Amino acid sequence: MPDRISDERYQRLLDLRAERPQAIAEAYAARKRPPRLLNDRGTIFLVAADHPARGALATGGDPLAMADRRSLLRRLVTALAHPDVDGVLGSPDVIEELLLLGALEGKVVIGSMNRGGLDGASWTMDDRFTGYDAASIAACNLEGGKMLLRLDDHDAGTATTLEGCAQAVSELAAHRLMAMVEPLPYHRDDSGALVLRTDVGSLCRAMTVASALGTTSAYTWLKMPACEDPDTVYACTTLPCVVLGGVAEADQAAQVAFWARTLRQPVVRGLVVGRTVLYPADGDVATAVDAAAQVLRAASATGLR
């Protein structure tokens, strides 16, 4: 993969971090914003980069794959250079680094809000808000905020997260900013490990709970997985939805193909993908991004829009 961040460019980032912290506020204020969330095809394609903030560093069998920050930024800059990539979803540190690198001009930027449920922690379901809040998202001129809502009926941490997400939805709506809620139903297996529930009933329940959060749903979007029965699951809401990429699989072509049917659902407006395109098995980020872009283009061309 070509290095889109030269030694000189990376050193300048490090120097700005140490010597001119005010450069970050200047970059937020100066960023050219996109005219609207959706592109000319009526869709949105975002690259996700908020996993490290929750301590989730593993992918593709490498427990520290996402720990190397220069490598992560290089992959993000490569992905953002694709003409079909509309923007990024990330934690404050990553967003600010991309701003200082000049990679977010004209891009949609969604700030990640609750990253307190650390990967592997006993309190992982208690996803406290430790990143952006609605006020900072508005002050930084971002297009919206994203929150993770993992639902486990046997973990009391879910209730705290529900309350926090409801408050964030209301606060973002007061600023007329997108609230992207990612409701994912989980249970613990016999070993205690969290396992995503992918059955229709669990996904429908998660979607309906998330749709009703806050004092208004006017600015709420849902971020949901592709599934075996999208006709039933995605009929649960009129809210705009984006499909999440999930954990990178060895057979990326099959994984991308699996997204296609869900992407054709009338409420689905786009795709938010992280590790699948940033850390493909063959290391070719540009080709992985292009494959995801092509499946979204095809779905939008054959859908109801």
Rank of each mutant, 00 (worst) to 15 (best):
V94Q: 01
A206L: 03
H82V: 04
L38W: 07
R188L: 07
D127K: 09
L142Q: 07
M147F: 09
E143A: 11
R54M: 14
N114M: 07
P63D: 12
A286I: 12
D7H: 12
L263A: 04
D7V: 15
V88T: 11
E8C: 03
R69M: 14
D126M: 14
S71V: 12
E143Q: 15
E97A: 08
R264D: 02
Y219M: 13
F45A: 12
D119V: 10
P35S: 06
D229P: 03
T158R: 01
E26D: 15
G131P: 11
T59V: 14
W123S: 15
E105F: 00
A48I: 05
V200Q: 12
V272I: 13
G274R: 01
V289D: 08
L73T: 09
I24R: 08
T158I: 06
V243N: 08
S91F: 01
L184Q: 04
E171L: 15
V108S: 08
L203A: 05
A260Q: 14
D68Y: 02
A29Y: 00
A156S: 05
V109H: 13
K146W: 13
S211Q: 06
A79T: 06
M224W: 12
W123V: 12
D229E: 11
R70P: 00
D133R: 06
A25H: 10
P185T: 09
L194W: 08
E143S: 12
S136P: 00
V88F: 00
M178C: 14
R12L: 09
E249N: 07
A81K: 12
L101H: 04
G120I: 03
E171T: 10
V209T: 13
P2H: 14
P240F: 07
A174H: 05
A79R: 12
V77S: 10
V169M: 01
N114T: 09
A166Q: 01
A65P: 07
Q252V: 10
M125N: 11
D50W: 10
P2G: 00
D290V: 09
D199W: 01
A138G: 05
F129H: 13
R4T: 10
N141I: 00
M1W: 08
V273S: 04
A48K: 05
S6M: 13
L271K: 00
T158S: 13
E26Q: 13
Q294F: 06
Q22H: 10
G90Q: 02
A139K: 11
D15M: 09
A235F: 01
I24C: 02
R150I: 02
A298Q: 08
E143C: 08
V277F: 00
E19P: 05
L151S: 04
V272Q: 10
Y219L: 00
V109A: 13
P280K: 13
V108Q: 08
L57E: 00
V108F: 10
L76D: 07
E163F: 11
R128K: 12
